[in-house]
Design a protein around this nucleic acid. Structure first.
Lengths: 341, 341
DNA sequence: CCATTTTTGATGTACGTAAATCAAATTTTT
DNA sequence: AAAAATTTGATTTACGTACATCAAAAATGG
C-alpha cells in the first residue's frame, strides 16, 4: 500500500494539519518542524496521489495554446490536433483554449503573451516566432511561475521549460544524406525550397542540410535558396522557373510547407527529367506525390504527438511532477512509399 | 462543470442508488428504469470521473507482462523498459508483474497464459510466439473478460485486443527500398540475415523485403536466408562464410537481433569490398556501427513506447475507455547517422 | 386482496487529499 | 511573569464515485 498523509503524520509525530501545511507550503510551520516532516516524507517514500489531490481541489488545468494564423496544411493539422485535445479536455480535467495570432509577427505574439500574465493560466504552449521580444515575454511568464512550452519551433535562449518539436538541424542533415545516397554518385545541382529564412526551423533545416552536403557529397552543389513563403502559387512559379532555367538540377529539398505548388511544378516539368525529391510534412498532397513517385521521401513531425506531449509536459509542470524524457522526445519520421501510416 | 451522478439522478428522476446500479451493472433494476437512466446519461453527456472512481474503488490495476527469456540486446532493452514501468507503477495505480517464459516455446507460453485465468489480473501483455496453442490460450483469456495485448510480435487470428508493435511487412519493404535506392542501379547479390524463420516478425520482414526487391529492383537478387538464431557467434561465422564464398554480394539486410556477430564479420572482411548494410534494432553495437559507416541505416522499434502503449491500452480496456489510435500506433524508426536520438 | 418477490429510495461510509476553523500549546516579546 | 504572537493539533467538510444496508414502495403471483 502506498503511504498516505496519515503515515507522514505518524512518522513525523505531528498532526495531519501540519503535514498539510508543509505539503501545500502554507505558512505557520516552524523550520524544525517543517524539516521533520520533509524527512519523514522522504523516508517513507511518500508521493502525493495526484488524482485524489485534484479531486479534492476540484482543479481543472487551464491551458492556453497560441497558434499562428497560417494557412497551410501543417498548421491546419496542428490546429485540428489542438481541437481534438480540447474535445478530450473535460475527461482529462483540462480546459484548453486556443489563441490565434498573426503569423511571423513577433510584436503580436509578445503582446498576447503579456496578456496571459494577468490571466495566469496553468500553462502556456506556443508556436514560437524566434525574436528577442518574444523571448522576453516568455521569460516574464516563466518568472511569474507559469509553465511554458514551445511547440514545433523553438525560442533561442529563452527560459521556456520544454520544446515539443523535432531537432531541425538533424532533420536537414538527414534530408541531405538521403538525397545524396539516393542520387548515388551523380553530380549536379540541388534546389532548395523554403518558406522563409526568417523562421528558425527553416533556417536550421537548411543549416543541417548544407553541412552534410558539403561534408559528404561534394559532387552536389546547392543552388540559392528559393523562398516560397509557404504559398502554393508562389512556390509553383519559382520552382518552375528554376527548373526551366537550370538543367543541371537533379535533386530538390523542400524544407517548408509550400508543397502543393512544388508538386504541381514537378508534375508539369519536361518528362525526360528524373528528379530525386525530399520534402517535409506529410499531408494529403505529399502523400499522393510519394505514392506516385513524384517525391522520394517525406520527413515529418507528428503534430498530434507534439500537441499531446506539450499538454503532458504542462500538466506535469503544473503538478510539480517529472516527465518521461524518452516519451516526450518528438521524433523525426521518415516516410518512404512503404511505411506510410 | 462536468455532470455528475447526481445530475443523472435528477435528470432521470430516480435516486442515486438506482443510477449507481445502472452504472455498475448491479442487478435489481427494471428494464424501463434502466433505459430511462441510460437515456439521461446520454443526454447530459455524463462521463465517469475515472480518477474519482478508482479512488473510491481503492483499485490498483494488476497487469502481467510475459516476456521471453531471450538473451539479446533487444529483449534486454524491452525488459528494462518494463522494469522502468514497474518503478513508475505505484504512481499510476498499477501493479505490474513480469513473467519470464522460455523463448520460442509455445507450450510454455500457453501454460503460463492458462495459469493467469485463475489469477485474473486486470490485463495481460505478452510477446507472442505465433502458434495455435498460444492463440487458443489467449482467446480463452479474452473470453474470460481479461484484456490482452500483444507486444513486438503479434498473434495470427487471435482475439487479442491490441497489438503494440510495428508493421513488420512494411518494415521489410522499407528496408528493401532503402537498400535498393542506396545501391543506385548496381547489380549484384543481397544477403539476408535472420534469427529464425519460425518467428512471425522475421518471416514478415523477409516477406516485405522480398516483395519490394522483386517488384522494383530486378538487378538485385536475394541469396538464401542465413538463419543465425540471433546468436552473435553463429551469425559471425555464417556471414563471414557467405562473404568469402560469394563475391557478388553488394548489400546486406539484417532483420533479426544478432547484429553483434554481423558487425564483426563486416569489419574483418577484405577492405576493398564496400557493402551497403541495413539492420534492425538500435543498440549500442548497431549505433556505433552506423556512426562508423559499417551500417548505412537502422530500422528500429522503440521498446519503451511499446511498453508504455501496451500499459495505456490495458488501462483503457480495464476502465472501458477508448484509446487515441494515432497515439498507440508504434512507428518504424529509420535512423541514419544524422538523426540518432 | 393478501402474501411474496422485485424494484427503488434513503442514507452512510470509504478512498486520499485539500482547505478551513477554532482551540490549545508553545514560543517570543515586553 | 504576563501578554502577545506564533505554531501546532483536532476536527470537519468537500471532491465524485463505489458499495453496502435497510426500509419503503411497487409489481407480481396465487
Amino acid at each position: 500500500m502506498r503511504p498516505t498523509v496519515h503515515d507522514i503524520a505518524a512518522a513525523a509525530g505531528v498532526s495531519l494539519a501540519t503535514v498539510d501545511r508543509v505539503l501545500n507550503q502554507r505558512p505557520g510551520v516552524r523550520h524544525v518542524t517543517r524539516e521533520k516532516v520533509e524527512t519523514a516524507i522522504r523516508e517513507i517514500g511518500y508521493v502525493r496521489d495526484v488524482a485524489a489531490a485534484n479531486l479534492a481541489k476540484g482543479r481543472t488545468y487551464s491551458f492556453v495554446f497560441i497558434v499562428p494564423a497560417s494557412d497551410n496544411s501543417f498548421m491546419h493539422g496542428l490546429n485540428a490536433e489542438v481541437m481534438a485535445a480540447v474535445a478530450r479536455s473535460p475527461v482529462e480535467r483540462t480546459d484548453i483554449r486556443t489563441l490565434e495570432v498573426p503569423a511571423f509577427d513577433p510584436a503580436a505574439l509578445a503582446a498576447a503573451l503579456d496578456t496571459l500574465r494577468i490571466e495566469r493560466p496553468a500553462g502556456v504552449a506556443l508556436v514560437a516566432t524566434d525574436a528577442p521580444e518574444v523571448r522576453d515575454a516568455v521569460d516574464r511568464l516563466v518568472q511569474d511561475g507559469i509553465p511554458v512550452v514551445t511547440v514545433v519551433s523553438d525560442l533561442t535562449g529563452s527560459l521556456r521549460h520544454h520544446y515539443a518539436g523535432v531537432d531541425n538541424i538533424a532533420a536537414g542533415r538527414t534530408a541531405a544524406r538521403l538525397l545524396g545516397r539516393f542520387l548515388g554518385g551523380a553530380k549536379g545541382d540541388v534546389a532548395v525550397l523554403a518558406g522563409s529564412m526568417l523562421v528558425r526551423d527553416h533556417r536550421e533545416r537548411l543549416e543541417g542540410f548544407a553541412a552534410v552536403m558539403a561534408e559528404e557529397f561534394p559532387g552536389l552543389s546547392i543552388l540559392p535558396v528559393i523562398e516560397g513563403r509557404d504559398d502554393p502559387d508562389m512556390a509553383h512559379m519559382l520552382v518552375s522557373d528554376a527548373l526551366s532555367k537550370r538543367d543541371g538540377i537533379i535533386g530538390v529539398y523542400s524544407l517548408g510547407a509550400g508543397n502543393r505548388g512544388l508538386i504541381r511544378a514537378l508534375k508539369d516539368k519536361s518528362v525526360d527529367r528524373a528528379l530525386t525529391v525530399i520534402a517535409h510534412e506529410l499531408t494529403d498532397h505529399t502523400r499522393t506525390a510519394l505514392l506516385d513517385g513524384t517525391i522520394d521521401a517525406i520527413l515529418n513531425q507528428d503534430a498530434g504527438h507534439e500537441v499531446r506531449s506539450a499538454i503532458r509536459v504542462l500538466k506535469a509542470k503544473a503538478d510539480g511532477l517529472s516527465v518521461i524524457d524518452a516519451q516526450e522526445r518528438i521524433r523525426l519520421d521518415i516516410f518512404l512509399k512503404d511505411n506510410l501510416p
